[in-house]
């Protein structure tokens, strides 16, 4: 589905990603872990198409297309979804209106007619139940006055509505209490299919108790320094990152 090769990216001349290699196939869940400042969120932003980052080397192929050649909106329309670490507030714009606009823009891109109102409302009802999102949240302004947990659930609700091929969850667990974490994870699991895939970026192993990854990668200093099965996450929880950092120094 997505193939990242030797990806280098920098911001304001400062290199952040220093050669990322990663391949994700349909049906897979990949977890990316790593200490603060290792480049996890940068990787998410670069894949979603944020402009501040300069790609200095490498390539990203998504469903056979050169992803780096596409603007952020076209990447979204091709099926890449980013669940934001800090979802943005848009005052005065209802969640419903926001989503309807998004869905119709995506449909337009695919040469489809706008979604009929009845189908849309049905979809809203169905998908908001998935993340136990209160009906009133759907009609409130996008993320405005939402609690931290509501914002994250709203991200997963949007993900459910837009049905992406590849979802990138950027620290979706940060700031969530255990109940909210369970709801969010539950939503993500229900959306999982053989045709879609996810990249779950997280700081803590805790989320991976709920969203079970097929692979775990450790990102450190802009590079993936270790990959392994889901058990790697447990090892990290136990030993921290220091032992890997040491290896890295020796390798270097």
């Amino acid at each position: 589905m997505i193939k990242i090769e030797n990806l280098h990216a920098s911001i304001d001349g400062q290199p952040i990603l220093k050669g990322i290699n990663l391949e994700v196939k349909p049906g897979e869940v990949h977890a990316i872990m790593g200490p603060n400042g290792s480049g996890k969120s940068t990787l998410a932003s670069v894949l979603a198409g944020r402009e501040e980052y300069e790609i200095t080397e490498g390539s990203v192929t998504f469903e056979g297309k050169d992803l780096l050649d596409l603007g952020a909106e076209d990447r979204a329309r091709e099926g890449i979804f980013l669940a934001f670490q800090y979802p943005v507030e848009i005052p005065g714009v209802s969640n419903i209106n926001f989503l309807k606009t998004a869905i119709n823009e995506i449909r337009k891109y695919r040469g489809e007619e706008p979604i009929p109102a009845k189908d849309f409302l049905k979809l809203v009802k169905e998908k908001s139940a998935l993340v136990e999102l209160d009906n009133s949240l759907a009609s409130r302004s996008v993320n405005e006055g939402f609690s931290g947990g509501e914002k994250k659930r709203n991200e997963i609700f949007q993900m459910a509505m837009l049905e992406p091929k590849l979802s990138i969850l950027d620290e979706t667990d940060s700031g969530l209490d255990i109940d909210a974490l369970r709801i969010v994870a539950n939503g993500v699991n229900k959306l999982k299919s053989a045709d879609n895939a996810s990249i779950v970026i997280t700081h803590y192993q805790r989320l991976l108790d709920y969203i079970v990854p097929d692979f775990v990668h450790v990102l450190y200093n802009g590079k993936i320094i270790k990959s392994g099965p889901k058990e790697l996450a447990l090892e990290l929880e136990e030993k921290g990152y220091d032992w890997l950092k040491k290896d890295q120094v020796i390798e270097a």
């Binding site: 952020a72 909106e73 979204a76 848009i90 005065g92 606009t101 891109y109 949007q158």
Partner: peptide, 29 residues
């Protein structure tokens, strides 16, 4: 904000639509 616009772009809207949406939200009252 760039952040607001990027958020809309990431949901598949083009920039023009995003600005229209944000501005109309701002003027809703």
């Amino acid at each position: 904000g760039e952040d607001q616009i990027f958020y809309c772009l990431q949901r598949g809207m083009d920039e023009q639509t995003a600005i229209g949406l944000i501005v109309n939200g701002y003027c809703k009252e």
